[in-house]
């Protein structure tokens, strides 16, 4: 009965308006349907098959690939590694990005210069970033001198106990990669947050100041609440970007120490290009996607709670 009542309210005019409104998203939907739906359908279909990528014959295996994946230690380890990198990105990278965005929003000298500089790392290719950090973190020696800048400085400062071969030590390699990833990525958070700060009405600040609020109160009561949506997007994109990190790791350590540096995308590549198990690789892709969607749903629920308070 209620639905009927609702339907009655839905007049021709409403229908026409809905249609007009829908036409706004139509180009995006068309593009999406063509270029996503078929590949996604195909990936899902392949994930139920055993296929080497060449044969005409694909063997239907039900959910065997998923069952195998569930027990695959390498896969879960790669998820764990990506999780660690994401943790670093969420804390270290985002705090740094926000702090720098706030600093650049103040009336300080040379802020134009800083704004320009902070965006250089994201622009650089992973090849260059990889080269440079490999050189900084190099643990080798030549004629009694350390080649890597970091070890060289530690040596000169007398901190010998800290010297290690940063990228070939299983205990430090993942942390180093995570920090370089943060360094490379903070520029994105920086400009998004900075753009967000720019859209806050300056009158709000002035009004607060007239009311006698100090900097911390302004920050807590105006900046943060106004920035919550942007911060949430930045967090969301950080999680997505960090979970899918791959090229940077490849540039820094190649296939080295995979047991300590593998991430989901590298595992998918390995299954597909290295082991030629396309069905399994697709199963990995699907379950990775499902995991990310679950994380974001949880995140979404949490953030609605946060917004309510």
């Amino acid at each position: 009965m209620t639905s009927l009542a609702q339907r009655k309210k839905f007049t021709m005019g409403d229908a026409k308006e809905s249609l007009v409104n829908f036409s706004f998203i139509l180009p995006a939907v068309i593009l999406f349907s063509i270029f996503y739906i078929y590949p996604f359908y195909d990936i899902f279909r392949l994930s139920l098959h055993e296929w080497n990528g060449i044969d005409a014959q694909k063997y239907y295996v039900h959910f065997d690939n998923f069952k195998e994946l569930f027990k695959d230690g390498n896969w879960w380890r790669s998820m764990w590694h990506a999780g660690i990198i994401t943790f670093f990105a969420l804390t270290f990278q985002n705090v740094m990005a926000f702090a720098l965005a706030l600093a650049c929003d103040q009336k300080i000298r040379m802020k134009k210069f800083y704004r320009m500089i902070f965006f250089i790392p994201p622009v650089l290719s992973e090849v260059v970033v990889g080269f440079i950090w490999m050189w900084i973190l190099n643990g080798d020696m030549q004629s009694g001198e350390y080649i890597g800048i970091l070890n060289y400085l530690l040596d000169k400062m007398g901190l010998h106990h800290l010297i290690t071969s940063w990228l070939s030590n299983p205990d430090t390699v993942l942390t180093c990669i995570a920090l370089v990833h943060c360094w490379k990525g903070f520029g994105w958070g920086f400009i998004m947050l900075f753009a967000g700060l720019q859209t806050i009405d300056a009158q709000l600040y002035e009004a607060a100041r007239v009311d006698g609020a100090n900097s911390w109160q302004i920050f807590k009561n105006i900046t943060i609440p106004m920035m919550v949506p942007v911060i949430l997007v930045v967090i969301f994109l950080t999680v997505l970007g960090s979970m899918q990190v791959f090229v940077l790791i490849k540039a820094m350590v190649g296939q080295g120490l995979q047991d300590y540096t593998s991430v989901p995308v590298s595992e998918i590549f390995e299954s597909m290009i290295g082991l030629k198990r396309f069905g399994y690789a697709c199963a990995q892709g699907v379950s990775f996607g499902v995991t990310l969607i679950t994380i974001s749903l949880v995140f979404k629920l949490l953030s609605t709670k946060v917004k309510q308070y």
């Binding site: 643990g139 990228l167 390699v173 190649g254 080295g256």
Partner: peptide, 16 residues
Amino acid sequence: LVDGIVIKQNKIAEQD
């Protein structure tokens, strides 16, 4: 062995 041999891509090893 050179210290960081397990993470060296051949290009880098050749340079060394």
